[in-house]
Design a protein around this nucleic acid. Structure first.
Lengths: 121, 121
DNA sequence: TCCATGTTTCAATGATCCTAAAACAATTCA
DNA sequence: TGAATTGTTTTAGGATCATTGAAACATGGA
């Protein structure tokens, strides 16, 4: 992930409504959710959710597909992982101090439960 | 890390100059760098770097200390690690798909080279 | 056609960013 | 001590960008 894209992603996640949308879509899974349902879930108007979804798509954090009448949005897990990687490797320059802090928390387990009820991508 | 703080951090990193400052300070190490030196390094005016440093401090990403005449700024590695953790665990809700993407890249190695010559930018 | 669902446009408000000048703080030296 | 120097912050201003709700527009299904 290049820096401009990363900054676009950071800007996208710095907005309360957009962060809420991303979290909703991540939990929802690859199946995604229609724009209207997202609006209801996060409690904003359809036009507002449309605006923010466009912003999230510009940042590459969500994908859209038409499904009958609805346009269904889903989280792009690869892009989110890209962003985590950028934050660690490029922004933090893979600094040992950050690595150390992360390892202390055991946030990276090689033995993931891999409970795939929300599906693989 | 709570969500408002995380969003503040994302907003801070979404700005080109501020991201440059953070990267510079991360590479510099715990010793830090005086505000004037940072301004010269990233190529902005002293007043401008002061403005952005204040913003970064508000987000908790940098710390400052007076050293003789200069005010020396340094990266807060714990806060950066907090942000990485938030992005993985809270924002991405610890989703297996993100974990999987990260593990594939072997971004989390317990045996880091730990070459701390504060390398190339 | 009619209705439901999404999207776009628009104008207003508010936030952010930058430059330059002035103010402030701490140190050095006469 | 007191003035000059160095380093940093604050302020003022104007420009640019982001955010919002309302309303108009487009599209797919009954």
């Amino acid at each position: 992930m290049d820096e401009p894209r990363a900054r676009l992603s950071f800007a996208a996640l710095s907005q309360e409504t957009r962060l809420g949308i991303v979290r909703t879509l991540v939990v929802t899974g690859p199946g995604g959710m229609a724009a209207g349902a997202i609006a209801e879930k996060v409690g904003v108007s359809p036009s507002n959710v449309s605006f923010h979804l466009k912003e999230l798509e510009r940042a590459g954090l969500v994908a859209q597909r038409r499904e009958s009448r609805s346009i269904v949005y889903s989280a792009r897990y690869d892009a989110l992982a890209d962003l985590v990687t950028f934050l660690m490797e490029d922004c933090c320059v893979g600094h040992p101090s950050v690595r150390a802090s992360l390892n202390e928390r055991a946030s990276c387990r090689s033995t993931s439960p891999a409970s795939d009820e929300s599906g693989t991508l």
